[in-house]
Design a protein around this nucleic acid. Sequence first.
DNA 1: GATCCCTTTCGGTCGACACTGAAATCATCG
DNA 2: CGATGATTTCAGTGTCGACCGAAAGGGATC
Lengths: 154, 154
Amino acid sequence: MSVGRETRLSAWIERFAAHFAEEGIPLIGGRILGYLLVCQPVERTAAELSQELEASSGSISTNLKYLVNVGLVTKRTRRGRQAAEYRINEKAWTEFIQRKLNAIASVQTLTDDGMRLLSGDPERAQRLKTVDRLYGWLSEELPALWERRPAAPK
Amino acid sequence: MSVGRETRLSAWIERFAAHFAEEGIPLIGGRILGYLLVCQPVERTAAELSQELEASSGSISTNLKYLVNVGLVTKRTRRGRQAAEYRINEKAWTEFIQRKLNAIASVQTLTDDGMRLLSGDPERAQRLKTVDRLYGWLSEELPALWERRPAAPK
DNA sequence: GATCCCTTTCGGTCGACACTGAAATCATCG
DNA sequence: CGATGATTTCAGTGTCGACCGAAAGGGATC
């Protein structure tokens, strides 16, 4: 007997969450993200997420707050509805990734400061120089690459 | 009265360690890395690192093992010397950074699997598609960019 | 093989953080 | 304004991992 699509999707959500857990995003936050990327309909309330993902209301609340804060999820309230609805904000993924690239490139300021402290002693600065050159190159190329990213189609 | 170069260097090492602590490298590991990048002479024993960085022998041992394992530090033993000497391996920084870039690009396999699960329902796949397109582009461009990296001068 | 010195291993402590569930809070509707 | 149904806050629990320091382990010299 074959496994249903929804079952396989929830396994996928778990893999998705596991990946981002390695990057420091709480497991439940990752599950919310994965779930909101594939659920139908696209909007969910906190209570629904709590039930669907089998997580406490408190955890859902904390993680939604975090995700809304970094922009990956948007919150919508409607008059006449007590429950807010949450949905994925696909647009925000660009900034999310950009932050990661910037984090890598930002090491250059660090190595650069180090080089300054060692100016006047090229011998001693040699190890740092090797690293500084790499990050120097990255801090040029990564932002440049990012600018060439394709625009999202309407 | 001005601050000595060594004092400023140890402040720099601390900043350096703090940066990598955010990326998940233990504080003491980061200190070792920073210290080995700028110390004179370039090689140090575990005992020297322990004293210089005011960390326990156990922590130094654990972190050196880790750093040697990922290749950022190399261990050298010499006949007639009981103490092994550790030094920075500048070369390994390229692989270190490459792993980071790959980690970003690797999300593409995840989104791709998700797209497969949603094939046959383009409506529902739309959110994921946006994200998949971005990572798809990255998984093309990042490795390509990396290939263009300048070779380290002799 | 005994001694010396250095390194690794290991048990234990501490602090951070994710998570829970109950209580407080808030918004809507009658 | 009270009741209802939702969310947020908060105190408490458990887990995980970095760190320490003492004890065990390994080489090198005598």
